[in-house]
Amino acid sequence: MAGFDDREKAEEAKYAHDQALKFKIEARRNKLLGLWAAGLLGKTDEADVNTYVTEVVASDFEEAGDEDVYRKVSGDFKAAGVNVSEEELREKMRTLYLKAEMQVQEAK
């Protein structure tokens, strides 16, 4: 029975680790996305860029998944008249996720 308990604890620890890693990657992706979007929105002042990046990162806490982040950035683009298609924005989110994943892995 001890072996089963040990295996269960190991699986729980792995799950917790995987979730923490996913959170770090998504937060990094959102930061990179915020920096990219800030540039397209014409934000050049460092304080404005940092504020916008913080808003993008915080938008991910509204609901599970990426839709909250997508809506935030997409809405800001539309409000500012920045022409970025849904496809382009979603592809950018995917590529930045992969970049963030590499950065987080390298930081270990």
Rank of each mutant, 00 (worst) to 15 (best):
F61S: 14
E63A: 11
Y97N: 02
A80N: 10
K92L: 05
E67S: 11
V73M: 11
D68F: 10
E86K: 12
S85I: 00
V84K: 07
E67I: 13
E87A: 13
G81M: 10
R94Q: 01
A64W: 14
L89H: 03
Y70S: 01
R90N: 08
D76S: 09
G81I: 07
D76P: 05
R71F: 14
S74L: 14
D60W: 04
D68C: 13
T95A: 01
S85E: 00
E63S: 03
Y97Q: 12
D68K: 14
M93Q: 07
G65Q: 08
G65F: 06
S85A: 03
V69W: 08
D66H: 10
E86F: 04
D76E: 12
E67T: 13
E88M: 06
E63G: 02
E86T: 10
A80K: 13
D66I: 07
G75A: 07
K72A: 12
S74M: 15
L98K: 15
V73W: 05
M93P: 01
G81E: 13
G75M: 11
S74W: 12
K78Q: 13
K78H: 10
Y97L: 09
F77A: 07
R90S: 04
A80H: 15
M93S: 02
D60M: 12
E88V: 06
E86W: 04
E87H: 08
E91H: 08
L98F: 13
L98M: 15
L98Y: 12
E91C: 01
V69Q: 03
E63L: 01
V82A: 05
F61P: 02
Y70R: 06
F77N: 02
Y97V: 00
E86V: 10
V84Q: 00
Y97A: 03
F61A: 15
R94L: 00
A64H: 15
L89Q: 01
S74E: 15
V69K: 08
F77I: 04
V73A: 09
G75W: 02
S85C: 00
K92P: 02
V73K: 05
V73L: 06
E87R: 10
L98H: 15
S74C: 12
V82F: 03
G75T: 11
E88F: 11
G65P: 05
R94G: 00
D66E: 12
E86A: 12
K92S: 00
S74Q: 14
E62I: 05
Y70E: 04
M93H: 06
V73N: 02
R71C: 06
L89D: 05
R71K: 15
Y97E: 07
R71H: 11
T95E: 03
D76I: 05
V84T: 04
K99E: 10
E62F: 08
D66T: 14
E62Q: 10
R90M: 04
K72W: 09
T95V: 07
D68V: 09
T95C: 04
V73H: 06
F77V: 01
A79T: 00
D76R: 09
N83I: 08
K99Y: 04
V82E: 02
